[in-house]
Each structure stands twice: as C-alpha cells, then as structure tokens.
Design a protein around this nucleic acid. Sequence first.
RNA 1: GGCACCAUAGCCAAGUGGUAAGGCAGAGGUCUGCAAAACCUCUAUUCUCCGGUUCAAAUCCGGAUGGUGCCUCCA
Length: 469
Amino acid sequence: MRIYNSMTRQKEELTPLEDNHYKIYVCGPTVYDLFHIGNARPFVTFDTLRRYLIWCGNKVSYIQNFTDIDDKVIIRAQAEGVAPEELADQMIDEYYKDADGLNIMRATKHPRATESIDDIINLISILFDKGYAYTTDDGVYFSIDQYPDYGKLSGHRLDDLIAGASERVSELEGKRNPLDFALWKFKKEGEPFWPSPWGEGRPGWHIECSAMSLANLGETVDIHAGGVDLQFPHHENEIAQSEAATGKTFVRYWVHNGFVNVNYEKMSKSLGNFFTVRDLVEHYPYHILRFFILQAHYRMPINFSDDLLDAAVTSWHRIVSCVDLLAFVASASEKVKINPMKERELEEEIATCRFNWQKAMDDDLNTADAIAAIFELVRAANTAATSSAVSPDLLLSARDTLIELLEVLGLDPTAGKEAIPDDILAMVEERTKAKKERDFATADRIRDEIFSRGFKVEDTPQGVRVIPV
RNA sequence: GGCACCAUAGCCAAGUGGUAAGGCAGAGGUCUGCAAAACCUCUAUUCUCCGGUUCAAAUCCGGAUGGUGCCUCCA
C-alpha cells in the first residue's frame, strides 16, 4: 500500500523494515480526563491501519503510550484532591471503556511514562554523553544547536522558529536557545518526582515517547503516528532526541491525521468546544462514532455536528439492514429459481467490491472510498436478495464479504442483535392471521403495538421480517 | 510575520491528466390491503475565481480570494 509520509510530503510505498512485520508507535492520550471525539480520531484511524496491515498478512507490533505524568495530570489531580497516580489509573480505566466501545484493539503494549523512567533516564544520559544535553536551574535541556537537522519534519527554518519563539518567550530561563526543550524537569513543591543523576524531578513530555518507542520497538520504527498538531514541536523534538542518541533514522514513515472541527474550528479542550466520547455515547452508539470517523479520509478535517452523526446513523443502518436481509432471505424456505445471469452479476459485484475496497485501502488508507465500495455491493446484494433468482449460498457469500471487509474497518454489522422475544413472535403470528382474514384494522393495531414494544414488522416477498428498532 | 493544509451538488464526501464515486436529504415511480424495507429514475454540462501548460485539467503550473491548523499545552 501507499501512505502519505509527512516527512517527505508525499505518498510513498509502505514497506516494513523487517519482512511482514510492522512496528508502529502511536502517541497515546494524556490521562487526566475522558477523551473527546477529536482524540478518538487517531485511535480509530491507526487501529484501522493496524487491522488492515494484519488483514494483508503482516504481523504488527503496536505501541501506544499513556502520558500519565505531566502538568495537566498534576494540576487536575490537585484540583480533585487525589494523587496524580490515582487520577491516571482511573483515567486509564476510562480510556479502555471508550476504546473498547469504539472497537479499538488493545496495543501490543501500552507503556506508561511513569513505568519507563529508567528508559528515559538512560536516554538522557546518552544525550549528555554525546553533548546534546545541558543543565539549567530548572531542568535538563536538549540543545538543538547541536542537531543541525532540527526542523526537517515540520519544514520550518530555524531562524523563523527562533524569531517566533523569541516573541513569546521573553526570557530564556537559562536556555541556550529559545527552542531548546526540557528533557527533565527538576522537582517542584508538591509534585511527584523520581531520582536522577542530575537531580530529583520528572521527565519532559517529548522524551517519554522517544524512550518508550526505542525501548519497545528498537531504534527504528516503521510508522510513528498522531494528530497533525503533534508534528511540531512534539515529533520534531522526538526526532532530534532519538536520532541524536542513536545516530539512526528514528521513524521511516510519519503519519498524521487531520482534526475533528466544530463550526470549522479545531475541537480542543482549551477552546472548550469538545464532546467527549462518553457524552456522545448517550445519543449515538460507539460504532456510529467509529463509522462517522472512517467516512472521511483520515488526513482531511471532519466538521462535527449532530446532523452529520444523524446522517451516519441512517447510512450505517442501510448496511446493517442489507446484512440482515441477506441472512433472512437465505434462510427463507421459499424456492429460488436460479438465474445464472443474476448469479454471475452478483459474483462480479462481490469481486468488484473486494477489488475497489482494497484499492482504496491501499491508497493511503482511503476508508471513505472503501466504504463507498461497500455501498456498491449493498445495492447489488439488495437487488439480488429480492430477486428470488440467486442461491442462498451466494447471498451468504455476499454477506460474508460485507462482514469481512467491515471487520477490517472495526465495524460489525451483526452486533447487538437480540433475539426476538416469544411474546412478540406470538403477536406477529396473530397479526399474520388477522391479515389472512383481511382484518386489516386488527393487523395494523397489532403492528403498532409491536412497534411500541420496540420491533418493526415488514412484509416481504420472502415472508414476515421482525426487526428490533 | 514564518510554515503547512483545505475549497467538489441542499448537506457530507471520494476522485490528482481523458468527459464528475458513495452516503444523507428531496422529487417521481415499482412493489404493498396500507406501510416499511428494497429497487428504478431524476437531482453538479460542472468542481471558489483568473490566467497558463496540454489534443485533453476538478486533477499540473502561476496568481487572487476565502477558510483552517501549527509556530505555546493540544489528537
């Protein structure tokens, strides 16, 4: 497949360094709060990438960290009167609840910054040895002047960055260059700290990802992913630290997802215009949120609104309804007069769907196009299902195709199917009887009653269908 | 100020050189006792605008306009 590499700003053929084995690092959440739909986008997107690579026959080592110690965690914990560790533990549990709901696979490993302190200290030591690190009054800093490639990911010129930084940072606070960033922050009153050769303190933000990536995946990973806002300075800094330490290419493909916007503005905690996944789930099921995210290409911005989610619900229902219909028709006792022409048509549609779906996925994970391919098969399958001219086996094969391809997108059109209760089935029987006697008033009354109990009755050529609403 | 990205129908959204996918909404029709679902037909002679390259451009190049993001914690 081809994937857009932020480093080269073009789509490139994706190949792993090790045969059939991809090493992927995804920047995970800072665990001080529930995550919002904007945070969910990279989790869903890169989970889908992972599923696709696995589907293609690869092994994937997938690391996603938890940033469990930083300013935000400390501040929130203080506000709530709990220890930062306690808050982090709790929020990690909450993360898993939402992530499981969104059908995001557990990472191969979810390292926590606080459990990687040794790795972090190790890495900083190497940077000291190689002359990239220095100490000030408040911490240990990385000296970007020692690293000539600084800015290569974000395309910034050093002078411009320095000019920008100087405008805001009035004092250098002991830094040699305004762009130098903290590797280790010396402890402040009331904050958690760990011992280090340079003094007690805690890790800077950027170093933890480098340390966890190097420790878990080695010096060079295939893919490092996250939101576009991480491109600078976070990922730029990660490159500087890691490559300065190892002398090796840190990441082969940098992959960044676009934002979820609200009224064309970035959704963010600081703007306050965010919707947590937990809140949204009150109104829309998890899989709708996932489907909604995957309906756009991952690098394009998504504008978030209820109307769009409502459209996603209807849209998704079309798929579920087709999958149900195929199973229903295939199991109906009605005799089919197989029409070879129609059979071949459906066979071709199945093949075309698979082909287009894979082509779309291969082209920079174009899930929007992949879903379009699925809808094409939905139409063809619906037509075939109502034609009474296609064998049950072939209908089921169309159904299996839909289920298989959706599974790779982390979507399950068969999920949440409850059995129809016996008393509802009895009412359906009663209605059918009334219909036979042409007592439509009674039949309609029973249908309304069944509907109010949460089930829809449909008369199809293949018989009566009962569907949970 | 610097660096990126984006602009396609009522809405959402693919499409990166050969005569505009898909979804939602809408109109008409088929089927139905009525519905529902499904299917069929219709809904952008045109892709923000202006130039250029080309036999051919939504797609490449230049410019303009509008919008967003990053440059500070941020998915």
